[in-house]
Computed example of a mutant assay.
Amino acid sequence: MVHFVGAGPGAADLLTVRGMRLLARAGCVIYAGSLVNPALLAYAPAGCTVYNSAEMTLEQVLQAIRDAEAAGVDTVRLHTGDPCLYGAIQEQMDALDALGIPWDDTPGVSSFCAAAAALGAEYTLPGVSQSLIITRMAGRTPVPAGEDLTALASHGCSMVLFLSAGLLDEVQARLLQGAYTPDTPAAIVYKASWPQQKLLRCTLGTLARTAAEAGVRSTALVLVGDFLAQGGYQRSKLYDPAFTTGFREGKA
């Protein structure tokens, strides 16, 4: 059987308990070596066969899984963050279905969550933004029609960009064509939760320059929106003493 496991954003102790238990009894581990912290491999048992998928094609990954199935051992397919985001797992699941190989999926902590935690930020602030756009800048991998960054920026809500740290001049220009302004708060989080983590606060107007001066060109998330500003949000209704909920009566 194949277990897709979200490795979390980087810190070894942000792997889920379920993921750790699956790793502990794996006979084969295929991990995304370009992004997954290799320290997580310490959870795998001695004698476990380990592959770095950064050096493999999909066909080679599937062959390694078939070899593990023939040997009667489980495979853990270890993806960075949560594999539902930019994890290229659907094509693997579909291929396994076609091969008749069973699989399951264990979610992980996404780096966009770790980035907010590192910044002490909340994406959904009452009166500021109640929506979060997770996207990427089109590069060698295109984005579908209708998901152009300028069009998404027209909403002006909280935004996180993956896989875009090397394209920040264009990111900045496109976002400024939307509802954001040069003064809109922004942040660059390099390797969220890793020991090498860097937090770079800036404005959208200084985004590209900030990254360049810090030497950040990859493995970073870009966060944009007024949720990063200090204050300016409304108090939540949930904990307002005058607000009635299904669990308590509001009192003026």
Score class of each variant (00 low, 15 high):
residue 99 L to H: 00
residue 114 A to P: 10
residue 233 Y to S: 15
residue 116 A to H: 12
residue 67 D to F: 01
residue 202 C to L: 07
residue 177 Q to R: 14
residue 250 G to S: 02
residue 233 Y to L: 14
residue 49 T to S: 06
residue 7 A to L: 06
residue 195 P to K: 11
residue 14 L to Q: 13
residue 234 Q to M: 13
residue 163 L to N: 05
residue 43 Y to A: 11
residue 35 L to C: 12
residue 161 L to G: 11
residue 187 A to V: 05
residue 84 C to H: 01
residue 94 D to N: 08
residue 239 Y to G: 03
residue 40 L to Y: 02
residue 39 A to M: 07
residue 88 A to V: 15
residue 66 R to H: 07
residue 202 C to A: 00
residue 198 K to W: 07
residue 8 G to D: 07
residue 67 D to Y: 04
residue 39 A to W: 03
residue 57 T to V: 02
residue 27 G to S: 02
residue 65 I to S: 09
residue 237 K to V: 09
residue 21 R to P: 14
residue 93 M to E: 13
residue 162 F to N: 02
residue 67 D to E: 14
residue 94 D to C: 03
residue 114 A to C: 09
residue 24 A to S: 15
residue 12 A to C: 03
residue 164 S to H: 00
residue 120 G to M: 01
residue 174 R to V: 02
residue 231 G to W: 10
residue 218 S to D: 13
residue 156 G to R: 12
residue 196 Q to R: 05
residue 71 A to P: 13
residue 154 S to T: 09
residue 138 A to K: 11
residue 74 D to A: 14
residue 215 G to Y: 07
residue 98 A to I: 12
residue 163 L to D: 05
residue 182 P to W: 03
residue 91 E to W: 06
residue 218 S to A: 11
residue 153 A to V: 01
residue 168 L to E: 04
residue 134 I to N: 00
residue 59 E to T: 10
